[in-house]
Design a protein around this nucleic acid. Sequence first.
DNA 1: TAGAAATGTTTAG
DNA 2: TAAACCTTTCTAT
Length: 269
Amino acid sequence: MPEGHTLFRLAREQTTQFAGRPVHVTSPQGRFTAGAALVDGRVLDGVRSYGKHLFARFGGDTVHVHLGLYGAFTGGTGTPPPARGALRMRWVADGPDGAGVWTDLRGPTACEVLTRPEVDAILARLGPDPLRPRADAGRALRRIAASRTAVGALLMDQTVLAGVGNVYRAELLFRHGISPFRPGRAVDEALWARMWADLVTLMRAGVRLGRIVTTRPEDRSRRRGVPTREDAHYVYRRTGEPCRICGTDVRTEMMVGRNLYWCPVCQPS
DNA sequence: TAGAAATGTTTAG
DNA sequence: TAAACCTTTCTAT
């Protein structure tokens, strides 16, 4: 489930559980053995996310993780379970209260040890991350407003905007009544200011809830309580289902290799 | 048991 | 633009 909110949350959790203590780092699967040996037993300074990237600092060395489409961390307290399956990286430490803590990483696109300059090179190619307090929304606008490319494609481009994935893209465009096919240059400053502010709100809510919920309570079938999975989105993965606002069938199409979802009436071209 | 799909990125052409 | 890659989970046979 990795869009930016997932990584932000992971960074925070891992910092709370592991920072300031030596971490036993292994790679039971074997594909990260050399990297694990570099940082094994060292004190973790902290974990930070930027966009969909995760950076765990051990002095001058940083473990960089990108979950890709289906990478995932699991974890818990006490003694870790026997390693099974393709377990790329495991952390074990004495947690803040003295009890053991552990976390397991499976299926990431990237899991590697980087030097400071290598980390900086990754950061340099990322656009502003709406979850970072001092992110510069204007930097994204300059890219968008100068481009003939569809805004639906620009929002997914990590050099334009860091941390937005397929769900936030579809939902943000719906909430603002914008066709995914509108050229970036047809997005003006006022519209972008509204979209950015909304993204900040939505992604912070994602951090808080641990999942993406974009529907307003009045647009859900059940207005009270925790929204069901069926009720959490306006258009994402709702192909052929009626739009929550106008009842038109939600449409889907491939855009830059990814499934795009939108309502042709609420988001007219 | 096999196959498809999944909130992503990189590389090759 | 297409294909490759990483792994799990759900669905169909």
